[in-house]
Amino acid sequence: MIGSGWRVFGLLLINDIRLECRRPHLLATGLLFGALMMFITAIAVDGAGDLSDSMTAGLLWLNIFFTTAIGFLRQDRRDEEYGAATGIRFIPQDLSVIYYARWCSTLIFILCAVTVLTGMFFLLFNRAGPVRPLWFAASLGLGTLGLSGMGTFVSLLTAGSTLRDVLLPMLLFPVSLPLFLGVDRLTASALSGAPVPWSWAGVLIGYLLMVSVLPWLLYETLMEV
């Protein structure tokens, strides 16, 4: 049974990636919107190279959050277009496997967008590279992991809503506030080379645990209706 669960997970993941490769809407919109957001932000702060590390880290994550929220809307619409949203409910497995597969595929797409966005961030803000590149990469990876997990869950919650476009970011941002604060501080410390704020790493891990466990308990209930 566990083996077949992994098989379903793999099939769903490959299917998502294949669909995205066929028509790369999510990637294209994510990349373009992210780049545009970064550009506008750089103009808004007067292309400032003299901003503090915590401020620039905050701006980077703000752009990642907005870009991600737009991406979730796009991915679900694709499912609705193909009618897969109905068909997927009939898989002979615990339905939470859909959540984990969706989380994984979204993570891959968002990571691609985040990589480009970060490149643009260094370019437009005229910044030197991070003092601790590994920590910087880890904070980006963990932040994107948490954000894509919670975003996948919230996008299912808002699936039947007529105000979905507005409600998805409206629900996602307050719920992911601990994540935002945590990755913001970790990224700032990686940029400046300040001592690693372990307490924030703890908050981040706690959040990731919540994002991993809660949907396992609740996702099936949501898919039933």
Binding site: F153, L157, G160, L167, P174, L214, T221, L222
Partner: peptide, 28 residues
């Protein structure tokens, strides 16, 4: 956000389940 989400849903059963699930997640 929860109140808006609930108000913007037509189906009664889905509305109730979504509100309950969201409340649990938000509260925790």
């Amino acid at each position: 956000g929860c109140v808006l989400l609930r108000a913007s849903m037509e189906d009664g059963r889905r509305r109730a389940v979504v509100t309950a699930v969201y409340t649990v997640v938000a509260f925790l």
